[in-house]
Write a protein that binds this DNA or RNA. Sequence first.
DNA 1: GCGCATCAGATGCAAGCGAATTTAATGTGC
DNA 2: GCACATTAAATTCGCTTGCATCTGATGCGC
Lengths: 150, 150
Amino acid sequence: MSNFDVVTPDNPEPALVAEWRDLLARHAAASCALDRELGERHDLGMSEFEVLERLVEWPPGCGPRRLQDLGPTVHLSQSALSRLIGRLVKAGLVERAVCESDRRGIFVVATTAGRKRYEEARPLHREVLARHLAGPVGRPEAGPVDRPES
Amino acid sequence: MSNFDVVTPDNPEPALVAEWRDLLARHAAASCALDRELGERHDLGMSEFEVLERLVEWPPGCGPRRLQDLGPTVHLSQSALSRLIGRLVKAGLVERAVCESDRRGIFVVATTAGRKRYEEARPLHREVLARHLAGPVGRPEAGPVDRPES
DNA sequence: GCGCATCAGATGCAAGCGAATTTAATGTGC
DNA sequence: GCACATTAAATTCGCTTGCATCTGATGCGC
C-alpha cells in the first residue's frame, strides 16, 4: 500500500497520467467554452453543433442519413441522440423522414434553416477551438479561459 | 453560404477540426470505459476516482485540502464538487472537517478506507488509460473498445 | 399466413451536471 | 456595535445523459 509509484524511466505510468490529465483539461476547457459561447450567440449546444455539422458535411449522393449512422460519430448513446434530434426538429433545423425501404429507420436531414444556422455558428466554433486547442494546455492566445469552476 | 471551406495548406482549420475530433473520440472512449469499469469493479465513478487521487496525492505537510483548492484540478463546478464530496463522505472514503481558522471553509481528507479503495482501483485505472490513450484513436491494444453508442 | 427473434427508434427513469440561489461566516466602513 | 459587501459551501432547479424498456417494422422458419 505504497502511496506513490517509484518513477523510473521505464515506468510509463506517470507519462500516461500526465497525458490523461492534459486530455481532460483540454476537453473541459474547450467543450465548456463551446457550449457556453455557441449557446449564447447561436442557441446551439456543443452536441447539437456536432450533429448539425455531420449532417451538413454528409456528401450528397450518399442518400439521406440514418439516425443510426450518426451515433458512432458523435459519441452519444442512442437515446441521447434520439432526443437531440427531437430538439433540433423542434427548433426547425432538421427534419425527420421515414425511410420507405425500411420503415423502422428514419432519415435525418438538415433544413435550410439548419444549414444557415450551422454556417453562422461555424466561425465561432473554429475560433473557440483555435483558442483552446492549439498549444499547451491552459494557454489560450487571447482572452481568458472560461472554466466551469472558476 | 458556401458549404465547405477551401482546403489550402495555409488554412489550419481542417487540422484543428481533426485534432478536436480526435480529442473528443479519445475522451469519450476513455472516460466511458473508466466510468464503467471502475464503477463495476470498485464502485467508483471517474470523477470520484480523480478527486480521491488528488486527495491521496496531496503532499503531507501542506495542511489539509480545502474543497475550493480541489475544484480547478478536476474540472467540476462548485456544486458538482460539493455533491461529489457528499457521496464520498457517505461512502466513508473521505471526511469533512470544519476549518477553524475560517469557519466558512471545510477541509477534505481521505480516510484510511478511502486510501485503500484508491490503491485498489489505481491499477485498473492505469490499465484502462493504457488501453485507450496510447496510440492512434480507436485502436486499443487488447479487447474491444466499449463505446456508449455501440 | 403464423409465430418469433431481431432491429430501429422512442420513452420512462434515475443520476449527474451547471447556473442561480441560499445560508452562514468574514471583513470593512463608520 | 451595526449595516453591508464578500466569500465558502450547500441546496434548488431545470436539463442532458445512459440504461432499461417499450413499440412497431422486418424477416426467417415452417
